[in-house]
Amino acid sequence: MDFLYNLLIDPLVQIFTYPIFALEVLIGGLLSGVMYSLVALGFVLIFKASGVFNFAQGAMVLFAALFFAGFIDTGLPWYIALLLTIGVMVLLAMTIERVVLRPLVNQPHIILFMATIGITYFLDGFGQTIWGSSVRVLDLGIPNNPMEFGGVLINQFDMVAAVVAGTLVAALAVFFQKTRVGRALRAVADDHQAALSVGIPLKTIWAIVWTVAGLVGLVAGIMWGAKLGVQFSLAMVALKALPVLILGGFTSIPGAIIGGLIIGAGEKLAEVFWAPAIGGGIEDWFAYMLALAFLLFRPQGLFGEKIIERV
């Protein structure tokens, strides 16, 4: 009885007793959800364009952050470090396309998925071989303390992250809708063969998509790195982005954003109000359970394409 009370009644009582606190938790959750969306975006870009479920996105986040922090630690100004890291990510995308994806064209998706897990291991090892496994502090000069907005405390850093994510999504939207390359990308995402037949170079497009995903990874890596320090656990952030993906749908950019918001808010609320009832530390799996429960009602996610199957 006690357990049920703690699980079902007490959290609601607390939420209604301290509405400001609950609101703070909610906003904090939404903002951290934006950070998940940043990682999830990279997954969506690649899945849309090439049908590859890129497990290496988390490793790419870590890889980019390691290089950026490493370059800064060698004394380079931040803009040169940023340019160099962008160069590294472009090179990485081209290498992956040439060495991994091209020989595996036409293989089943699971093989490509496994290949990206191979890439994950490779990037984790490679980045740490070069830059070492110690934690690097990445200071962007953004204050990491709460600010008050109309009686509600909000973390400034999370606000900046949200603005950055918003800018990134807007930039991606413009890139996809208005540029020639963006239109080609959307064409490839719709139908590989039709795109090929109107003369869109598939291989170049894939390299571009992986580059864009790498750059999104770089942004995510910088933001997460500044928040947690640049270290191996950044690669684990990707595991948090997966439920965001299944919630939002693998093929939808708005889905990644909204999924991130739902997961972030749900996770924080559950951690603060419900976790004490069942032992705490539920952040590891709560997002998955939320996504799982959700999938039972909408198997293709919130905004995913409904797959019509024919025999």
């Binding site: 994950t120 490779f122 090892g125 490679f126």
Partner: peptide, 8 residues
């Protein structure tokens, strides 16, 4: 680290 890399 190299082990992880070569494994991948």
């Amino acid at each position: 680290h190299m082990e992880v890399m070569v494994f991948g």
